[in-house]
Amino acid sequence: MAERELNFGEALNEAMRQEMQRDPKVVIMGEDVAGGADVDHLEGDEAWGGVLGVTKGLVKEFGRERVIDTPISESGFIGAAVGAAATGLRPIAEMMFVGFMGVCFDQLLNQGAKLRYMFGGKAKVPLVIRTICGGGYRAAAQHSQVLHSLFTHIPGLKTVVPSTPYDAKGLLISAIRDDDLVIFFEDITFGGIKGAVPEEDYSIPFGKADVKRAGEDVTIVAIGKMVHHSLAAATELEKQGKSAEVIDPRTLSPFDEDTVLSSVEKTGRLVIADESHPRCNVATDIAAMVADKGFDYLNAPIKMVSAPHTPVPFSPPLEDHYLPNPQKINEAALGLF
């Protein structure tokens, strides 16, 4: 029998549905996550279910007490989610676009991330914040950002960047069951990505990278959308006589150092693809880690492919120039031979 395929959003929806069935303390909150609150003629199915429809239909099954539309008050509802998590609920909060994190940053940086530590371990914050990130949608500077590096820097937060529907479901279930605050990044261009997803619930452990393609000559560590670009680059490299191994860390905090180091030990070459701005990002962090712990494995300098140090431009030719792509990854890898 053929494996069932879901798209990225459907996989996330199923993860939330199954966790809400399993645990009555799981609630969803955010702007338009149900949609059309208090609109008499709207039954659950016609409502938005989030701006990309990822939570569509959940209000019909679980009601508005558990799928809660919020006003456009990011500080308020993210802070409320932190407080609810610290007192017994397990909220999944949807921050529509990662740029909007700017509005509620205190509630993450100074509250949610620090409660457990400051309270001597007497509080836990089992909160997941799902958010849309990434360029390529012509959504301009405030709606196209890739900020996982910023959140990975903050102690007390876990950061998850899935690249496939299978990983999305398993990682979101882990995130919901995790007792820490998890920021879960969903690339805006992933709507059309389909893949095999088991119907039963399953979890993927944090801090365990996935080798998306095995290879011998060069290691490409790729984050989020860069996984797909790197697989395309690897196909091209194969034609050019180079065998690339593509590693998807899947979670950035915690980070699976061993899988990356073992791969570099085998290949001797490392390219890191990250849509972040080029300084103080996850790519530079991985590069520093490999320089520290895997220096003797390297036969060539470490190369990073990132977005430039500019805001995301609106105009299509500028945004195309801005974004990392398979060709840039391919060129970086070839430059190591």
Partner: peptide, 11 residues
């Protein structure tokens, strides 16, 4: 309306 959310709910 704030997006799809009516003012009588959000305000």
């Amino acid at each position: 309306y704030a997006e799809s959310t009516p003012a009588h709910y959000h305000c």
